[in-house]
Design a protein around this nucleic acid. Sequence first.
DNA 1: GATTGACTGTGATATTTATCACAAAGGACT
DNA 2: AGTCCTTTGTGATAAATATCACAGTCAATC
Lengths: 216, 216
Amino acid sequence: MNSIAMLNKDQIKQLFPDWEDGLYESIIEHAELRTAPAGATLLKMGQNIKSTMLVVEGTVKLYQENEEGAEYFMYHLNPGEACAVTMVCNYHLEQSQVLAKAVTDVSFLAIPIEFMDKWLNQYKSWHYFVIRTYRLRYEELLKTIHETAFKNMDERLEFYIKRQVKQFGNTLKLTHQEIANDLNTSREVVSRLLKKMENHQWIVLNRNSFEWIKKD
Amino acid sequence: MNSIAMLNKDQIKQLFPDWEDGLYESIIEHAELRTAPAGATLLKMGQNIKSTMLVVEGTVKLYQENEEGAEYFMYHLNPGEACAVTMVCNYHLEQSQVLAKAVTDVSFLAIPIEFMDKWLNQYKSWHYFVIRTYRLRYEELLKTIHETAFKNMDERLEFYIKRQVKQFGNTLKLTHQEIANDLNTSREVVSRLLKKMENHQWIVLNRNSFEWIKKD
DNA sequence: GATTGACTGTGATATTTATCACAAAGGACT
DNA sequence: AGTCCTTTGTGATAAATATCACAGTCAATC
């Protein structure tokens, strides 16, 4: 992860239009603009949280992870969005309960968490931003629970694909193994279900990718 | 649901010790103290949210619900805790994504949501309270996802029982059917798994209740 | 164009969970 | 004690998913 030149106020303002004046300046002063290549792990489970992450470019994927290293995809973060988990106030001891990975090349603002408390006190717009972030992520988790608790794998796969399509368009560059990892199932199960979808003409299968063509 | 006499400042302060002075008075002025009997539904999925709920007495259970009315238990709310879902600002149009039920007889403070925006502006301690509420609920959801995504039914049942034990003590007054509903599985499955736990001497089974005796 | 390695397809089988069927047990009430 | 209703126990079977095994396919590389 490299630290490169900072954004200027207008650039930040475009991403986070609802903030107040002093806050932009504080960001410029104290945040660090970092980059990471596609596939990089940005935050590990159990890792001490040292900074808050605001996505500037690219897409980040948030996972739950278990003891054996199995992953479970929860939701995406896009430019202008923030990682709720890292917005800790008070403690320097909080450990991450999630795994965050860069899907594409990403750049993000990293703010040392010692500013969290201060900014909450100082900037109303930051306060609102934190609440909005939690609310949005909370709602994403509810959707994830809904799928996981009530649906069979075929429907969960469809939901998963639709989420990806919304993010990346109809052609998805994903191997069956990658999908299986995200859904915590096995490659064979995904292959068979995708084949069924192809038979139903919901998708067109290719090597290393497929296209969603279902109209609904 | 009845509206009864309001709490006094000291009583509220005991439940919510971190608030500031004006906020207690605003609560007394605008909140309504309501009660509901054990088993009552406090909030339905899809229902328009008209007020924020702060638990005063008793325990509330939060569920996800699907189209067919199947339920999935997510977490408890205890006195001094609040329902994150109902802490909406801005909109009067938000619909509940969760189902809330009284486990015991409960009393709670209901605050019309038109005050949410105002209080966020006016009271820092309220702002912090909202953030803390979201954070706590978010973490509960993460735990729920972890269990649901990675564990088999035997482990999920154990996790479920331990949560209940933490709430209500070692003797749980639950039928197998009730547990099955909370875990979105079938009564037979629960019966068989409980019987196994009894054989392992983790529990003692009785009619309409059982006792957790595993020491770990 | 032969080799290599990652990806995909698919049968066979095991495991987990759901569903059906029905019996037995316990408590409440007459 | 007998009736009724809810709860619990458990076999049999079905359905969903996981695992194992292996073959075929494609693309990159030498």
